[in-house]
Amino acid sequence: MRFFGLKTCDTCRKALKSLQAAGFTPEIIDVRADGVSAADLAKIVDEFGEKAINRASTTWRGLSDEEKSGAPLALLAAHPTLMKRPVIEADGVWTIGWKADAQAVHLGE
């Protein structure tokens, strides 16, 4: 299991705590500190398209209109913190966010 998130993100901390309590030990990739490989970014955009971009983020609000009109892959490559978080990959299954649907996939709830 791989966990893409930010150390400072409350949702990421909550998700990680739940996963660890359920017995998982995910490989944690901090999108700001560690970066995200081009292959992983491409897969995330393939899986989620526009939904991979967190349009409520401080980073998004700081972009120009021209930057906002860019392709999701280019935006995430330039600004990894724009990624909606957490993104979790487990056995080839990808989820984004930590709502009931993602929890059901990873925790069986």
Rank of each mutant, 00 (worst) to 15 (best):
K43N: 13
L107E: 00
M1N: 01
K99G: 14
E67I: 00
A21I: 02
R13W: 12
A56Q: 12
A38F: 12
C12E: 12
W60R: 11
K84R: 13
A104Y: 03
W94D: 04
E50I: 06
S64E: 12
T81I: 04
K17I: 02
G62I: 09
D46T: 13
F48A: 05
A33K: 15
L6R: 12
E66D: 11
I44F: 04
A71T: 08
F48D: 05
A33V: 13
V105C: 02
W60S: 09
A22G: 08
S69N: 08
G108R: 07
C9I: 11
A39C: 05
K7R: 15
G5K: 03
H79S: 03
T95P: 08
A90V: 07
G62L: 12
V45R: 03
I96N: 03
D30R: 05
G108E: 07
A33C: 02
A15H: 07
Q20R: 15
A77M: 09
A42G: 13
L107R: 06
W94M: 13
G62R: 07
I53M: 10
P72Q: 08
P80Q: 06
K51M: 08
S18C: 10
A38P: 15
R85L: 08
A90W: 03
E67D: 05
A102H: 10
G5E: 09
A104L: 09
R32M: 05
I29V: 15
I44Q: 03
F4G: 01
G5S: 07
C12W: 11
D101Q: 15
N54E: 04
P86A: 00
A38Y: 11
W60N: 11
I88K: 00
T59H: 04
H79W: 12
T8N: 13
T8M: 06
F24K: 06
L41G: 08
G5A: 10
F3Q: 07
V45S: 05
A104M: 09
E109K: 14
A38G: 10
P26D: 05
F24H: 11
E67V: 04
K99T: 10
K7P: 01
P80E: 07
G70N: 10
L73Q: 03
E27L: 09
A100E: 15
R85E: 04
A77W: 00
S57Y: 07
I29P: 00
S69H: 06
G97T: 10
E27C: 00
M83G: 01
E47D: 10
T11S: 15
T25V: 09
A33D: 12
L107W: 04
C12S: 14
A74M: 10
E50H: 07
L19K: 03
C9R: 08
G108I: 07
V93Y: 01
A33L: 14
S57W: 07
P26G: 00
K14M: 13
L16A: 01
D46F: 06
P80N: 06
A33I: 11
T11I: 15
T58Y: 04
C12M: 14
